[in-house]
Amino acid sequence: MDFTLASFVNALILGLSIGSIFLVAALGLTIIYGTAGVINMAHGEFIMLGAYASYTLQNYLGVPFFLCIPLSFVVVALIGLVIERLLIRYLYDRPLDTLLATWGVSLVLMQGVRLIFGSDPKYIQMPSFLSTNIAAGPISVSIFRVFIFLVGIGLVAAVWWLFYKTEFGIKLRAVTQNKEMAASFGINSGQVYALTFALGAGLAGIAGSLFGVLNIVLPTMGMGYVVEAFLIVVTGGGALLGSILASGVTGEAQSIFAYIFNDTFAQFLVFVLIVIFLRFRPQGLIATGGARR
């Protein structure tokens, strides 16, 4: 392969884009895991549901794409809320079982969607101006990837505001630190957990409406995201800042390896490097309170 500066810069920009996709995928998972300690294996299926929600709204109700994104947040957040109330709330003190139960949920969701929509791929249309490229000399970026990057920044800002600038955020952080103590101060921890789970699910819904444009919409599309999203959360250490750093680093690493080798081998290398990294730093990049998990 001939190395040119332009192609390398392109790879770096692509890495930033991959990182933002990882972040958008992992954001909801980070919140759910970081707050309630729930290992939500159905996260990928929440992403898939977001994509199908956008597809349905766009194709059957004629809702414009930019409105589909917040609406799929609402739809998936409601589904998440129902699942939390019916199942997850009984399992908060059994983290390993949340993993298993949510795997069952993911099977049901995937199969349910397959029964309703069929196994054939669906497509979400985007406004035509998003499908062009910005070019500056030899460097070119698709506008849609820039859009995802900006949405990622917007979501992080929104979550940060919610966590650190609102009353709900104070309650949420209190419950995260010590559930019993928070409860004795009159905070309804069950309600906080339920809303957090719904919020995480809703964020996955937004991710889904974006990824549905990037790739085709299939009942199985969530499977690919869940492992990567989990690796981001684990590498980051479960905190918001950790996930941002982790997705940036792994995104760049994947893009550079893909530039040197190829896509599949790059993915293999990144996974192996994460395993080696966790051998030496099992608490992740940003450790929350030195707690060893």
């Binding site: 290992i39 983290p95 390993l96 993993l99 492992v227 989990f230 690796l231 684990v234 996974f271 192996v272 994460i274 395993v275 966790l278 051998r279 030496f280 099992p282 060893r292 998990r293």
Partner: peptide, 15 residues
């Protein structure tokens, strides 16, 4: 490295 419980499960999945 005392990776245990759900984390180990995720790592096996990654490998």
């Amino acid at each position: 490295a005392r990776v245990a419980g759900p984390f180990f499960a995720i790592m096996t999945l990654a490998i």
